[in-house]
Write a protein that binds this DNA or RNA. Sequence first.
DNA 1: GCATAATATTGATACAGATCATTTCTTCTA
DNA 2: TAGAAGAAATGATCTGTATCAATATTATGC
Lengths: 238, 238
Amino acid sequence: MPDKKITADCSSCTLAKRCLPSGIPVTDLYRFTNIVSTNQTFSTGDVLFKQGVKAANLYVVKTGAFKTQIINQFGDAHVSGFYLSGDIIGLESMAGGVTLNSSIAIEPSLACKISYRPLALLRREFPSLSDLAVKIYSQALATTQDTQNCLSIHSAPSRLAQFLILFSQRTNQLSYQQSDLHLNMSRQDMASHLGIAVETVSRSFTKLIDSGCITKTGRLIQIIDRTGLEKIAQCSSY
Amino acid sequence: MPDKKITADCSSCTLAKRCLPSGIPVTDLYRFTNIVSTNQTFSTGDVLFKQGVKAANLYVVKTGAFKTQIINQFGDAHVSGFYLSGDIIGLESMAGGVTLNSSIAIEPSLACKISYRPLALLRREFPSLSDLAVKIYSQALATTQDTQNCLSIHSAPSRLAQFLILFSQRTNQLSYQQSDLHLNMSRQDMASHLGIAVETVSRSFTKLIDSGCITKTGRLIQIIDRTGLEKIAQCSSY
DNA sequence: GCATAATATTGATACAGATCATTTCTTCTA
DNA sequence: TAGAAGAAATGATCTGTATCAATATTATGC
């Protein structure tokens, strides 16, 4: 019974404690695993969903990373967010019925797909799942506020510094002092997300390195002086 | 029994259809009115809640307008959002237990206060209220994404144009083509929210007026050429 | 209705970052 | 491993916006 094996995966998943199953009593977990398609594989550039189509699913990132982007009428894309292990994609389109953005894998990734409808039914049945939903949404809102705050910072190096701080907080939630971070996204994606030119991203990296706050080898960043980085991030924000 | 009169207010409220009561069966509405402090009055500058204190309440704007702002360690304030009639304030702090921003009235206003705790109990009891919560959160996320998108626009006039479009969509949800809009906030607040200098806000207004897209008398804006305004908004966004 | 303060606009200048061009580095494939 | 294609960094120039200063307009209290 290979099917059962796949859908029964949630109980042994390393993310289970942070993910939606934590909202369901262990004895009823099978109810949840029935509505999940676990561990779907995505290569870099693969699309989870396109902007403007019927919104039908949530995706939980298991490994790897995704971005969401919004494309306006002139075809300009803006990267609205990055999603890492444990993050949930598709929350903002649940009410409207139409996807507000596209979601794309930015490295080889695994994600679990959950349909809106059966999830809503489960939520109605299990109050603890309803509580979890509110908690997840509340945190998602807090995260977008952080991002928004970051975008309101003026100088490019400050904005990049703030981005690195936020990113390191998200990737190293367990050990805040962990200083290594792997930037999964291209400079192009970072530039779009931060609202600055690609070249300016590079130059800003150079400045952060010269100031002695970070080191960089490829896409691997090491934060040497977190306090210094925070000082740079706090300059010239409205 | 004046107390009863006040708490029984929701059934006759003009916002009831958009507000939380719509998630509760009419026959049980009294359960909801019991946990609401309706029509609390606020003068310009009055504070709903301060950043960094215990988060305990949601506020629904009945009339008037509020802003939320985040203050960093250096005392720089960033206006993260504006809240108008029907909007709900305090959603993002529900999970963490601590307020992530301050909320301040920007004109004489009325707001209804709802405590988190009893609301959560009601939500567990009424699945339709749980559905509504998800819908409200989803829409709130969509709104912040709009804002974020706006902040990623480069040129100041484009950003202002986009802000005006979004603002008019929010204030005139019923009649999209309505072209009058009253900007409740000061130039300072707009500047902070848009991440540009106050002077640049003024200059950008002048440009929008010169281009023939809008007219302006004080804080009252009239959109003359919506298509033109949208074109300006779409220029030079990443 | 006037005086004062607060808010908003306009002007002049300097600088940060966009843009285009070029070089260096990295990654992928044969 | 070499070569090609892509991504990232660096350089030079020019434009847009921040900043500081001054003026105009709108609100507010007496």
